[in-house]
Amino acid sequence: MEKEKLYRLKAEANQLSPILNVGKNGITDSLVEELNKHIKANRLVKVRVLKSAEEGKDLKAIAEEIATATRSTVIEVRGRTVVLYR
């Protein structure tokens, strides 16, 4: 993805609020299904990863796992928030 588009998407993501929380159950089928609906409708979404979801995993690894499951691209991981785009 070119840098200009990446910067534009990051700026756009600053205005968004997280739409879903990934909790202790991790990345479930229902979470992926719900996330796919939101991504299809909005193209750019923000997801919050709760501490209970980590269980020794790296936050970037969790973000990549979500992106793979939803066939989207990780735009940014900031704190416990992941921005996805399709």
Rank of each mutant, 00 (worst) to 15 (best):
M1G: 15
M1V: 13
E2S: 08
E2Q: 09
K3L: 14
E4F: 11
K5Y: 08
L6E: 04
L6F: 04
L6Q: 03
Y7G: 01
R8W: 14
L9N: 05
L9E: 04
K10N: 03
K10R: 11
E12P: 02
A13W: 00
A13H: 01
Q15T: 12
L16D: 09
L16H: 04
L16C: 07
L16T: 06
L16E: 06
S17M: 12
S17A: 13
P18W: 15
I19Y: 12
I19T: 10
L20A: 11
L20H: 13
N21W: 13
V22Q: 09
G23H: 06
G23W: 04
G23Q: 01
G26L: 04
I27S: 07
T28K: 03
D29H: 10
D29K: 11
S30I: 09
S30P: 00
S30G: 02
L31P: 00
L31G: 02
L31D: 03
L31F: 11
V32P: 07
E33P: 03
E34S: 14
L35K: 02
L35G: 07
L35A: 07
N36Q: 15
N36E: 13
N36L: 11
K37A: 10
H38D: 09
I39Q: 05
I39A: 02
I39E: 06
K40D: 09
A41K: 15
N42L: 09
R43Q: 14
L44R: 01
L44Y: 05
V45N: 01
V45Y: 08
V45D: 00
K46D: 05
V47K: 03
R48W: 12
R48H: 12
R48V: 09
L50M: 15
S52F: 14
A53H: 08
E54A: 13
E54P: 06
E54R: 15
E54L: 15
E55M: 11
K57Y: 14
D58G: 05
L59G: 03
L59V: 13
A61E: 15
A61N: 08
A61I: 15
I62N: 07
I62K: 06
A63W: 02
A63Y: 04
E64M: 13
E65P: 06
E65M: 05
E65Q: 08
I66K: 01
A67N: 09
A67M: 05
A67S: 10
A67K: 02
T68C: 05
A69I: 09
T70H: 03
R71I: 02
R71V: 05
R71D: 08
R71N: 13
R71L: 07
S72C: 02
S72Y: 05
S72P: 06
T73P: 01
T73A: 04
T73D: 06
T73Y: 05
T73I: 07
V74F: 02
V74K: 03
I75Q: 00
I75E: 00
I75G: 00
E76F: 04
E76G: 02
V77R: 01
R78C: 08
R78G: 05
R78V: 10
G79K: 08
G79L: 12
G79F: 13
R80L: 11
R80F: 13
T81N: 15
T81C: 12
T81L: 08
T81D: 13
V82G: 02
L84A: 00
L84Q: 01
L84P: 00
Y85T: 00
Y85H: 06
Y85V: 00
